[in-house]
């Protein structure tokens, strides 16, 4: 266990690195996912087609491939950025598809009668969306969106597996391979780091869930 204590600051650095990847990817993925979801429920057929094509392509191919594309193919096309940005881009593009599906399922779970009633009492499209449909959709969205977010947090380790980003997994990999420390304590340290992130988020989410829960 000495490895853990001796390299504590290294682990903390990796932990913060993971949080940095997660924070940037979370914002970008939620934005992209919301845009995709808007496309998928829009009355404009080509946008719907594009949205569902994107989602089914991304859902059926591994994140690793997406990262290979952003990390190795984009630079080949003259899009040269630091690896951190390329990694975050790949993780966000991938997660956005799942965010889109979570949001869309939430919108579809709102009973049609609600929106019809809103239109019947003369609310405009914007009003009925903002005051009737969205508040209900957001509540249904919390559990599936929560598991997408937690999965993304764990997927940040895959960005780190390329070994460039200074995240928790990269630190563990370096300690065990380059510096030849005993593997088991390093594993324990890494697991603790990820569990800290995922369990905290899960606890926060379940509080949020019980707060916004509604009976149907």
């Amino acid at each position: 266990m000495d490895v853990l204590l001796d390299n504590f600051d290294l682990f903390v650095g990796g932990f913060l690195g993971s949080l940095k990847i997660i924070a940037y990817s979370l914002v970008l993925a939620l934005l992209l996912g919301a845009v995709l979801a808007m496309m998928r429920v829009s009355p404009v057929a080509p946008l719907r087609t594009f949205g569902s094509l994107y989602v089914s392509v991304v859902r059926n191919s591994p994140l690793t491939i997406m990262l290979f594309f952003t990390a190795f193919v984009l630079p080949e096309l003259g899009f040269n950025r630091p690896f951190f940005q390329l990694g975050v881009l790949g993780l966000s593009l991938y997660t956005a598809a799942f965010v889109c599906e979570a949001i869309r399922s939430g919108i579809n779970a709102v009973p049609a009668g609600q929106a019809e009633a809103a239109r019947a009492i003369g609310l405009t499209f914007g009003q009925s969306l903002a005051t009737v449909v969205m508040p209900q959709a957001l509540r249904t969205v919390v559990p599936p969106l929560g598991s997408v977010v937690i999965a993304m947090m764990k997927n940040s380790a895959i960005v780190g597996a390329f070994g460039v980003g200074g995240d928790l997994f990269a630190v563990g990999k370096r300690l065990t391979s380059a510096q030849g420390f005993a593997v088991l304590p390093v594993l324990v340290g890494m697991l603790l780091g990820y569990l800290l992130i995922t369990l905290t988020t899960a606890a926060l989410l379940s509080r949020l869930e019980s707060k916004v829960a509604i009976l149907r």
Partner: peptide
């Protein structure tokens, strides 16, 4: 199953691992 998966992440319905 989805709610259960949400407790610590995973995501059963979505392929989001």
């Amino acid at each position: 199953a989805n709610l259960g998966a949400n407790a610590t992440g995973g995501g059963v319905g979505g392929h989001a691992t």
